[in-house]
């Protein structure tokens, strides 16, 4: 098949998901967990790891079977595979990490309809080799963990006055001064809005710099010609 002869730049496949095409900050996909579970840092990293492991499994399976599935029924077929994997993950978490299971609640089952898992299956795994799909899954999964951790860190930092890393607690300022509403549902929207806004402000600034550099180059050349 065509895919076999393609040369992959594995490093690029891996890092694209983390920074350039970060699922949450750049593509604005899978926002439900980004808002729903990020009130507590430990839980959000836990969900991120669950998404990473599920993504590796679904991408691997779909990269293997993707070529045999007829085009018309691929969506139901992928959804069945994904739901199967998530059900396995759900039972594992229930058995070995009951605290995390209780904290995540319905969001654990809802990983099934997480846009990023379906999206990577459809956009990458179905068309590429198994190894490349695994790299892609690791990149995107790490991107999700990174984004969830950043949002949760700042929500806890300002909303509680301390950041709980699980093994150690970083006290920043007394709890009386914390902005309590940031750990409430509405604070999640605000935090995500501000983070995405700052990131796109930086992107806009970089673009403007590039444009300005191009412009000065052009004027320099026209001046030289003149």
């Amino acid at each position: 098949m065509e895919a076999k002869h393609k040369k992959y730049n594995y490093k690029e496949v891996l890092t694209a998901g983390i920074f350039k095409e970060n699922p949450i900050f750049k593509l604005l996909l899978s926002l439900c967990p980004a808002l729903g579970v990020t009130a507590v840092l430990v839980n959000s990293v836990g969900l991120g790891v669950i998404i990473l492991v599920s993504l590796i499994m679904t991408n691997t399976i779909i990269a293997i079977v993707g070529k045999f599935v007829p085009d018309e029924i691929r969506i139901p077929a992928y959804i069945t595979i994904i739901a199967g994997v998530i059900t396995i993950m759900e039972m594992m978490v229930h058995a070995f990490m009951p605290d995390l299971f209780a904290a995540l609640g319905v969001f654990l089952s809802l990983v099934v309809v997480n846009c990023i898992i379906m999206g990577r299956a459809e956009a990458f795994a179905a068309k590429n080799t198994v190894l490349a799909s695994i790299y892609d899954a690791i990149g995107n999964g790490l991107g999700i963990i990174f984004a969830l951790a950043v949002i949760a860190f700042f929500r806890e930092f300002f909303g509680r006055g301390f950041v709980d890393f699980g093994f150690f607690r970083l006290n920043v300022f007394p709890q009386e001064y914390a902005i309590g509403f940031l750990v409430q549902p509405m604070g999640a929207f605000l935090m995500l809005g501000i983070i995405v806004g700052i990131m796109s402000t930086i992107a806009v600034g970089k673009n403007n710099q590039k444009k300005a550099a191009l412009k000065s180059q052009k004027t320099a050349t026209t001046k030289a010609k003149g």
Partner: peptide
Amino acid sequence: TREGFKGVPIALVTASIMAMAFF
């Protein structure tokens, strides 16, 4: 709106204020 906040970011901030109202 500020250029960086156009579109989705400002929409998210608006959603936050709506959530406050629903609270």
